[in-house]
Design a protein around this nucleic acid. Structure first.
Length: 553
RNA sequence: GUCCCGUUCGUCUAGCCCGGCCUAGGACACUGGGUUUUCAUCCCAGCGACAGGGGUUCGAAUCCCCUACGGGACGCCA
C-alpha cells in the first residue's frame, strides 16, 4: 500500500527529465527505487490528486489541479524522460532490498529542519536501496505530546514528498506504529529481560542491569554518590564515523515509576521488532548507542547498523550549540508558509552534510536518490545558511516549465488577492514568463506582478521623486504617448523600433523614456524586461496609464 | 567534571580512506565592473581556507601523536 502522498506530485517533477539525459543514464549507479516505480509514472500522481507540494496551507490545499495544469500535466511533461529511464532500468533484475529504516519523531514540538533532514536521509537511503521507509511515532511522553504536533509531522513529511511504506495511514505488518499502542510488546520484552536477570526494581522504577564490576563514586556532574559499573566497552561500527568505542557506566531506567517505558527501551524494542536494519539518526544519539547495543544484546539480538548524522548548528549570531526549534529558519512550516518549493527545501536540506561529490548543487529528487550514500555524509556539523536556501529555491523555480510554474504561482497570487480566481491561464502564463527569471521566491511574486492584473497598484514615492527631479518628464511623456498610440503591431520588436525612431526624431538616447515609462505603467523602478513587459501589458493599458501619469505631473 | 565526536575560504562543500596531478576546485555571501540604465535577473572579475605544533616521508590538506578550539551526551525527555 502506498503512503498518503506521492512524492511524484511535486511540482519539481519535471526535473526528472534532466535525470534521464544521456549523460545521466550512462551512470553505473542503479537506483533501485526507480525500478519499482518507473513503470507507472502516471499512477504515482493520480489525476486530480491533491498536491501538497504546491505550498498551500493545510486543508486549503485540497483544490484539485486544473485539468491539464496539475500533476497530470507535469507527469506527462516528463513522460518521455520517464519512459527512457524505465527502459534503462528494465534491463536490470528486480530485487527487493532487505533495507528497513525508520524515522521516529516524537510529537512534542514543531517539525524542524533537523528532524526533516533525519527523515530525509532515512528516506533517501531506503529509496536508493529499494528498501522500506517506516514512520514510527514515539509518543511515550504523555506530558508533552500533542495531536497538533503529530499532525504537523504528517503534513510536513507529505509536503516534502517523503512517503512512508509502513506507519500511520500506510499500515504494515509490524505495527502498531504508535508507541502508545505497543505496550504489550514492551511488556513481553521486559519479561524477557527480567527472566534473564537483567533488571531490578528501585524507587518504583525498573532498571537495566549492566554486567561488570560495581563500585560507588561521587559524581561531580550529578553531584551525588552513585553506583557505577565497569562494563566492557561497546563497539559501535558507525557507517559515517567508523568504529567508536564507548562504555556505559551506570544502570539506566527501562520503566518509570509511573509505569511508562523509557525512550531507550522502547526505541530498541521497536527497532528490533520492526526489523530495522539501519538506524540513521542525529549525532546527539551517539552516546546513547552504547546503551542501545547493550539492550539489543541482552535481548539476544544483533544490533542494526548505526549511522550518526552530524548536527545542524545554529547561526553563531543566534548563540552557540545545535539549532533548536526556536531558531530562525528552523521550522519547516515557515518554508511552507513562505511558499518555498518543497523540492528546493528538500534539495537544500540534503546538502546539509551530504554532497554528491561532483560540484552539482541543484539536484532533482531522482538524482539525489541515485547518488545518495551514507558513506558520503560529512562528519562535522553544518550550519544553516538562509541565503543559500533562497538561492537553491530560486534555481528550482527558474527550472520549472512555465505550466508548472503557473500552477505553483496561481494559489499564491489568488491568496494574496492579486489575481482573480477566474484569471485566464494563458494570460497568467504570459505574465509569469516575465516574472519567473526575476523573482527568487514565490512569496515575492504578488508585489512583483500586481500591476499586471489590476490598475490599482501602489506607487513607490522615492522612485517618483527621483524620476521627476531630473529631465523634463512632461516633455518626454508628450513625445512618447502619441508615438505609442499609433504603434502597430504592439510587440516587443515593434516597440523597440518605435523607441529607436523616437530617439532619432528627438535626438535623444534610445533609453531616455524607459525609466519614466516603466514607472508610469507599474509604479516601481524595477521589474521584468522592459519591452516584453509593455507588450504583455498591452497598448490600451500602457497608453491609459501613461496618460493618467502625465496628468499627475 | 567525565565520556564520545569533530576541525579545508564568512557559510555549504570537493580533495583525505588509496600521500605527489592542490601555486587547494565549486557554490552561496560579500566587493568591484558590465548589461534593454541607477535596487529583486543575468554576465565578468576580485576577495577568501588546509586550527596550531611535532613527527613519518624524497614529498602531507591527505598518515601518526599532542595541544587548542568547537560540538554532543551524561534525565524515571525523546
Amino acid at each position: 500500500m502506498k503512503s498518503p502522498t506521492s512524492w511524484a506530485s511535486s511540482p519539481a517533477r519535471p526535473f526528472l527529465c534532466a535525470a534521464t539525459s544521456p549523460a545521466r543514464s550512462r551512470s553505473s549507479s542503479i537506483c533501485s527505487w526507480m525500478r519499482g516505480r518507473a513503470s507507472c509514472p502516471v499512477s504515482c500522481a493520480p489525476a486530480g490528486s491533491e498536491c501538497v507540494s504546491r505550498g498551500a496551507r493545510g486543508a486549503s490545499s485540497t483544490t484539485p489541479a486544473p485539468e491539464g495544469t496539475g500533476p497530470v500535466r507535469l507527469t506527462f511533461g516528463g513522460l518521455c524522460g520517464w519512459l527512457a529511464f524505465a527502459r534503462t532500468l528494465a534491463t536490470v533484475e528486480r530485487m527487493d532490498s532487505p533495507v528497513r529504516v525508520r524515522f521516529a519523531p516524537s510529537p512534542t514540538g514543531f517539525f524542524h529542519i533537523g528532524s526533516a533532514r533525519t527523515a530525509l536521509f532515512n528516506w533517501l537511503f531506503a529509496r536508493h536501496h529499494g528498501g522500506t521507509f517506516i514512520l514510527r511515532i514515539e509518543d511515550t511522553d504523555k506530558e508533552r505530546n500533542s495531536p497538533e504536533f503529530l499532525n504537523l509531522i504528517y503534513e510536513s513529511l507529505r509536503w516534502l514528498g517523503m512517503d512512508w511504506d509502513e506507519g500511520p495511514f500506510a499500515g504494515g505488518d509490524r505495527g502498531p506504529y504508535l508507541q502508545s499502542e505497543r505496550s504489550p510488546i514492551y511488556q513481553a520484552h521486559l519479561e524477557q529481560l527480567k527472566s534473564a536477570g537483567r533488571t531490578y526494581e528501585k524507587d518504583g522504577a525498573t532498571f537495566f542491569r549492566l554486567e561488570g564490576e560495581r563500585y560507588t563514586e561521587f559524581d561531580t556532574y550529578l553531584n551525588a554518590e552513585v553506583e557505577k559499573v565497569r562494563a566492557a566497552p561497546v563497539l559501535i561500527d558507525d557507517v559515517i564515523r567508523g568504529p567508536v568505542e564507548r562504555a556505559e557506566e551506570r544502570d539506566f531506567v527501562l520503566v518509570r515509576a509511573n509505569g511508562e517505558p523509557t525512550f531507550h527501551f522502547v526505541n530498541v524494542v521497536d527497532d528490533l521488532t520492526m526489523g530495522i536494519t539501519h538506524v540513521i539518526r542525529g549525532e546527539d544519539h551517539l552516546s546513547n548507542t552504547s546503551k542501545h547495543i547493550e539492550l539489543f544484546r541482552a535481548l539476544g539480538a544483533t544490533p542494526p547498523r548505526f549511522a550518526h548524522l552530524p548536527l545542524i548548528l545554529k547561526d553563531p549570531a543566534a548563540g552557540k550549540g545545535k539549532m533548536s526549534k526556536r531558531d530562525k529558519g528552523a521550522l519547516i512550516e515557515e518554508y511552507r508558509q513562505r511558499h518555498f518549493l518543497p523540492a528546493a527545501v528538500r534539495n537544500f536540506i540534503a546538502l546539509l552534510g551530504w554532497s554528491p561529490k561532483n560540484d552539482q548543487e541543484v539536484l532533482d529528487i531522482g538524482e539525489i536518490i541515485e547518488r545518495f550514500r551514507l558513506e558520503d555524509i560529512q562528519k562535522s556539523p553544518a550550519r544553516f545558511d538562509e541565503k543559500k536556501m533562497a538561492h537553491i529555491n530560486f534555481e528550482h523555480l527558474k527550472a520549472l516549465p512555465i505550466e508548472s510554474y503557473a500552477w505553483c504561482a496561481r494559489p499564491v497570487l489568488t491568496e494574496s488577492g492579486v489575481l482573480p480566481e477566474s484569471a485566464d491561464e494563458t494570460q497568467l502564463q504570459q505574465v509569469l514568463s516575465l516574472c519567473q527569471p526575476k523573482v527568487d521566491n514565490l512569496e515575492n511574486l504578488p508585489s512583483f506582478s500586481r500591476y499586471f492584473f489590476s490598475d490599482d497598484y501602489p506607487e513607490d514615492p522615492s522612485v517618483r521623486e527621483r524620476l521627476l527631479k531630473k529631465g523634463e518628464p512632461k516633455q518626454l511623456l508628450d513625445e512618447l504617448i502619441p508615438a505609442l498610440e499609433e504603434l502597430e503591431p504592439w510587440t516587443a520588436p515593434a516597440l523597440d523600433d518605435a523607441f529607436a525612431a523616437l530617439a532619432g526624431k528627438t535626438n535623444r538616447k534610445v533609453h531616455a523614456w524607459w525609466p519614466l515609462c516603466r514607472f508610469g505603467v507599474s509604479g516601481v523602478g524595477g521589474g521584468p524586461d522592459f519591452l516584453p513587459m509593455l507588450e504583455v501589458l498591452g497598448k490600451p493599458t500602457v497608453v491609459t496609464r501613461l496618460r493618467r501619469f502625465r496628468d499627475t505631473l
